[in-house]
C-alpha cells in the first residue's frame, strides 16, 4: 500500500515535469538566459504555495497520515558548503539541462542516453562522499 502511495506521487511528479516542459534542456537554457518567464513562473509559484502550505502545517500543527506530527528539520548554517556546492551543481544543471528529478523522468520519456548522466551523477555523489572530509563545509 505504502509502495503504491510513493509510486503514484512519483508518477504524478513525472507527468507534471514532462507536461510543463521543465524536463527540457531548452527550457533550462532559456531560463539561464532570462529569455522567458516560464521556468521562473513554475519555480516561483511552487515556492510561494509551498511557503503558505508549510506555514499552515506549522500553525495548525497538522499530522501525517500515520498520525505523527509533520516535522521540518532546519539545515545547519554555513556559507561555503551551500555556495560552492550550489555553484558546482548549477554548472552541471545548465550543462545537462536536467536536475535529478528530470534525469529520472527523461529516462521514462525514452531518452536512454540520460542513463549515462544518471550513472555519472552517482559517481559524482560517490566522489563527494570520499572527499567530503577534505572539503570546506
Amino acid at each position: 500500500m505504502k509502495f503504491l502511495t510513493y509510486l503514484s506521487i512519483g508518477t504524478l511528479f513525472g507527468i507534471i515535469m514532462t507536461k510543463s516542459q521543465a524536463i527540457s534542456w531548452y527550457r533550462i537554457y532559456e531560463m539561464f538566459r532570462f529569455d522567458s518567464f516560464h521556468m521562473y513562473g513554475i519555480i516561483g509559484s511552487a515556492v510561494i504555495l509551498g511557503m503558505i502550505s508549510v506555514a499552515l502545517i506549522k500553525k495548525y500543527k497538522l499530522r501525517s497520515t500515520t498520525g505523527d506530527p509533520i516535522t521540518f528539520s532546519p539545515k545547519n548554517m554555513s556559507i561555503p558548503r551551500y555556495l560552492f556546492g550550489g555553484t558546482i551543481f548549477g554548472l552541471g544543471w545548465a550543462m545537462t539541462g536536467a536536475c535529478p528529478g528530470p534525469i529520472y523522468t527523461l529516462i521514462g520519456n525514452g531518452y536512454g542516453v540520460i542513463l549515462v548522466v544518471l550513472f555519472s551523477a552517482i559517481l559524482g555523489t560517490l566522489t563527494y562522499g570520499i572527499l567530503r572530509k577534505r572539503l570546506p563545509h
Partner: peptide
C-alpha cells in the same frame, strides 16, 4: 553527459 552528470551528483551532495 559525463562531466555534466558528475557535477550534478557532486554538487548536489556537497550543497546538501
Amino acid at each position: 553527459l559525463v562531466i555534466g552528470g558528475f557535477l550534478i551528483g557532486f554538487g548536489a551532495r556537497y550543497a546538501g
